[in-house]
Simulated assay, not measured.
Amino acid sequence: MATSQPYPASRYEPAPVPDLGDRATRERLSRAAIGAFLNAMARWRVRDEDARGLLGGMSNGPFYEMKKDRARTLDADTLTRISYLVGIFKALNILHSESLADEWVQLPNSNRIFAGRTPLDYMIKGGLPAMQTVRRLLDGRRGGM
């Protein structure tokens, strides 16, 4: 019978995971998330229709209300989607020049993940799993993989 080895001691303390089921937590995170999302969409030159697609197909009314008034409280799904997109935005700006980082999501990509499509199209059609894949791809590249 094998015994498990103790995990090595470390000074690393992971940040607590926010409870997105808690309305107060979502209220606290929403304004910054909306601002970061709208900034990324502007820098990537994403059409409103595609931005709504990235948010899971948000309808026109709530989307334009969000653009006008950033004080709204987002649901857990929308916050999760924005979190992935902000991570992708950050990774692109670490990996590439500002101009390429801003264009990357709109460029056809020969990586087999994208099959010649743009990363934007891949993420709109694939939803959260596709965003997670793109985030992992870019984080892997940041780590030298």
Rank of each mutant, 00 (worst) to 15 (best):
F63D: 09
E49S: 04
I124G: 01
R43N: 09
T73K: 07
W104Y: 08
S99E: 15
W44H: 11
T118N: 00
A24M: 13
P6H: 11
M131P: 05
S99I: 15
G144I: 03
T25E: 11
A15K: 13
P16V: 11
S97I: 11
A115Y: 06
G140F: 09
A71L: 10
P16L: 04
L95F: 11
I82E: 01
A91W: 12
A91N: 13
I82T: 03
V17L: 02
P16S: 11
I82W: 02
L74V: 05
R117K: 15
R135P: 03
F114H: 02
F89R: 06
L100T: 15
D22C: 15
Y122D: 00
P129Q: 01
V46C: 03
P8M: 04
D19L: 11
L100A: 12
M58P: 05
D50L: 08
Y7R: 12
P6D: 14
A51D: 03
S83N: 10
P14N: 12
Q106V: 08
L79F: 02
G144V: 04
M131G: 07
A15I: 11
S83Y: 10
T133N: 02
L100R: 15
E27I: 08
G56S: 00
F114V: 00
R72H: 08
Q132T: 08
A9K: 15
D69E: 03
V134Y: 12
P6L: 14
G144D: 04
M58C: 09
G144R: 13
I82V: 02
E103H: 15
R28I: 05
G57K: 09
L54A: 03
T73A: 02
R117Q: 03
M66W: 00
L92E: 08
L120H: 10
L137S: 07
T3S: 09
L20H: 10
A130Q: 04
I113K: 05
A36H: 08
R72A: 02
S10N: 09
G143S: 13
A24H: 14
G61P: 01
G140A: 12
R45Q: 15
R142N: 06
P6W: 14
G61C: 04
G126C: 01
T73I: 06
L100P: 04
P129K: 07
M1W: 12
D139M: 08
R23I: 13
P6Q: 15
I34W: 05
L79T: 05
D75A: 08
M131F: 03
E98T: 14
M131N: 07
S59W: 01
R141I: 13
H96Y: 15
I124Q: 01
A101W: 06
R31K: 14
L92R: 11
A36R: 14
H96T: 13
D102Q: 14
N39K: 11
G87N: 07
M1V: 12
E27S: 06
L128V: 08
Q5S: 10
F114W: 03
Y122P: 00
K67E: 07
K90N: 14
E98H: 09
M66A: 00
R81V: 07
R70Q: 14
L79N: 02
D139P: 03
L137Q: 13
I82K: 04
P16T: 15
E49I: 13
W104K: 08
R52V: 11
R81C: 05
A2N: 10
V134N: 10
M123P: 07
G126I: 02
T25L: 02
E65L: 00
E65V: 01
R81H: 15
G140C: 07
R23P: 04
Y122S: 00
